[in-house]
Amino acid sequence: MVSLQWCGCADDSVKVVNNSQKAKVLWITVGLLAVFFVAEWSVGLWSQSLSLQADAGHILSDITALAISLLASFLAQQPANKKATFGHQRIEVLAALFNGLGLLAIATFIILEAIQRWQHPAAILGIPMLAIAVLGLIVNLLNITLLHPHTHDDLNLRGALLHVIADTVSSVGVIIAALAVHLWDWWWADVAISLLVATFTGLSALPLVQESLKIFLEYAPESIDPVEVEISLKSFPGVIQVEKLHIWTISLDKVMLSANLTVECITIQERDRLLNKLESHIQKTFNIAEITLQLTSCRKALPLPIHPLFNQDLVFMLSASKTHSNLEPS
């Protein structure tokens, strides 16, 4: 059984630098959102704007989610030990799942508040609402610029980015609602924008929750078809059968594969060469770096042994037959 691990000291150093940069970006984002939350919540209460209050609640959930992300990023850097043999990388996936569920909860809360406001409308101050919404748009665009470069291989940061994108859309909606309230006194615009923001927030959370659950349920990644992998392995000369093929994801950028392969009767050197070819093929074709393959050589059936008692009876019969033939007169 052989396992390939494509890692080295240089790769570890790069990972440490990347993790440090991600943590710094998260801290800056949390700081900006915390300052803006205080301002938006205060103005939302003063102006009686539901969309501002809803967006402020969303901001609070973002701050909580990012704090979880920081904790998850720290724990994910801890080395593997006797109990956590894969390390703590799935903590980031768990944080992403909580982020998605938090978005769904916020969306539900906004919808319920919008229904109540529709039944009991209130006077809204359009100018303060517009000013804080423009400030929120600027803050969210800055946060998107900070987070986006680090989300390609990090499901946790991708969840944080979805929060900020939802906030950005919410800020645009609040700006539109503020203009409608100030220019035409359309109080219902505040309620309508709140419903749109809630819908967008919920829809943006569903893919994040779905992808996180697939990782926890150890599904194969969407980009890899296990049937195609099995066919590819069987296409190699000498491979007779593929059994116990398992493909699962530890984190967004770490896919595992294990399988038992039955191969033709070959020498140890030929088996080693075949093993190297198979692992290299899987790594290049399917982008799977963590590979464990067990090769078992087929063996020809050996002749069944004759029971010792049967052997003794056969010898006795042959001896008796020979003796009888010698006693017969010629």
Rank of each mutant, 00 (worst) to 15 (best):
S235I: 11
E230P: 00
S321M: 15
T285Y: 07
A72H: 02
G238P: 02
E279I: 15
R273I: 15
I215H: 01
K284C: 08
I106D: 01
W27P: 00
L137K: 06
L304F: 07
L257D: 02
L104K: 04
I63Y: 03
I115N: 02
C298K: 13
Q283W: 09
I59D: 04
S321I: 14
G238S: 02
W118A: 05
K24I: 14
Q53C: 08
G202M: 05
A259M: 08
L125C: 06
I110E: 03
T151V: 15
A95C: 06
H163D: 04
S223N: 10
N326D: 09
F286P: 05
N19S: 14
E264F: 02
V229C: 01
K284S: 09
S69C: 15
F316L: 15
I124R: 02
L75K: 05
T267V: 10
L261F: 04
L278F: 07
G44Q: 02
V242N: 07
P305F: 11
S251T: 14
A123V: 15
D62E: 05
I175W: 06
S319C: 10
K234G: 02
P121D: 03
N311F: 10
R90F: 05
S325G: 01
S3E: 15
I240E: 09
K214V: 14
A205L: 14
Q241M: 06
A192Y: 04
T145Q: 12
K244G: 01
L157E: 04
D153R: 12
V25H: 01
F236Q: 12
S321H: 10
D12T: 09
P226C: 10
S47R: 04
N260K: 09
P121N: 02
L275P: 00
H148G: 01
H148C: 06
S69R: 10
G136K: 07
I291R: 06
V17D: 08
H148E: 07
Q210Y: 10
A178M: 12
I115R: 05
V38L: 13
S170R: 11
T29Y: 12
Q77W: 07
R117F: 00
L94T: 06
L304T: 07
V255L: 13
D313N: 05
L302S: 07
T296P: 00
S20F: 09
L104E: 01
G100E: 02
